[in-house]
């Protein structure tokens, strides 16, 4: 394998890994605040669809990008609101949100564009692809620092570990969880924007293809730390890139196996990692 081949493989890995990374950072944020975020998939879908939609109508991809992030954040806010004010079961609510977002996007496609499956081509920000990759990695580093070393990070962690103690220290766990969930939605929405306007220039049904769930796996394997989750997300990106590189090059390896590679890797990682993953203590538990 030549050097240029290795470099192009790594470049592809970064591009494939970044949307997962962005959503995973959102997942870390909301889970460290105590909210299980199974809705990342729906938030990415909503972000991608809204971005393509806004870009189509305004002809300005930047408005699309901002709108995608905002819509993702709104979905995250809805999850956070339900989780804090209504004390819902967060996994159930997350499943509901995923159904609403994927169904809503499919409905919207037919309603707005009068065609199923895919939007027309829209103005994109393909030139911002690499800046977004860098932004993702920088965000991971910044969040790592912020969660570990800043007062706001301490408050966030307190709400995820022991909201009652946080309350006693004068922090409002409900507000922290609500905002963390909204920001998480925004990050997942940015992941959707990356796919719809960064890599491509359209939204199509099923384009998120489970990346939100992969991001959730990255959160767990990354032990709920931004750097860890980002690293795992990029490994998933590398596995996806490998799948492209190996396709058709190794005769005895069926291509369906290559397609399942990231998921098999995740399963094997679960197998090897017994008991080493401890989630935030109060994760998923309604407060008060």
């Amino acid at each position: 394998m030549t050097l240029s081949l290795v470099l192009s493989l790594l470049a592809l890995a970064l591009v494939r890994g970044t949307p997962i990374l962005l959503a995973a950072l959102g997942g870390v944020l909301s889970e460290r605040a105590g909210i299980v975020n199974i809705a990342l998939e729906g938030e990415m879908t909503a972000g991608a669809f809204a971005a393509a939609l806004l870009s189509y109508f305004t002809r300005d991809p930047w408005i699309g990008a901002i709108g995608g992030v905002a819509v993702g954040a709104a979905v995250g806010f809805a999850l956070g609101f339900a989780a804090t004010r209504w004390r819902v079961d967060q996994i159930v609510a997350g499943m509901g949100i995923n159904l609403i977002c994927t169904g809503g996007a499919a409905f919207g496609l037919i309603y707005v564009f009068n065609q199923a499956g895919v939007t027309p081509q829209v103005p994109a920000i393909n030139q911002a692809l690499w800046p977004m990759v860098v932004l993702g990695i920088a965000l991971a580093a910044a969040l790592q620092w912020a969660i570990a070393r800043t007062p706001i990070g301490l408050r966030l962690r307190a709400c995820g570990e022991n909201p009652h103690a946080a309350r006693a220290a004068g922090i409002d766990p409900l507000a922290v969880r609500l905002y963390a969930s909204a920001i998480a939605g925004g990050l997942a929405g940015l992941g959707g924007v990356f796919l719809a306007l960064g890599e491509l220039n359209l939204y199509s049904d099923g384009m998120i293809a489970g990346r939100g769930f992969i991001a959730l796996a990255a959160v767990i394997f990354g032990r709920w730390t931004p750097i860890g989750a980002a690293g795992v997300a990029l490994i998933f990106g590398l596995l996806e890139a490998l799948q492209f590189a190996l396709q058709g090059n190794i005769a005895w390896l069926p291509s369906d196996f290559l397609q399942a590679l990231p998921y098999i890797a995740a399963l094997l990682a679960l197998l090897g990692a017994s008991g080493r993953y401890r989630p935030p203590a109060a994760e998923g538990k309604p407060y008060p």
Binding site: D89, G96, N98, L99, C101, G104, I110, Y111, A116
Partner: peptide, 18 residues
């Protein structure tokens, strides 16, 4: 569009969670 039904199912689940 049939997908409206999935939105409704999602809303139902979301409401039930509450």
């Amino acid at each position: 569009p049939k997908d409206a039904i999935h939105v409704i199912e999602g809303l139902l689940v979301f409401a039930l969670a509450a």
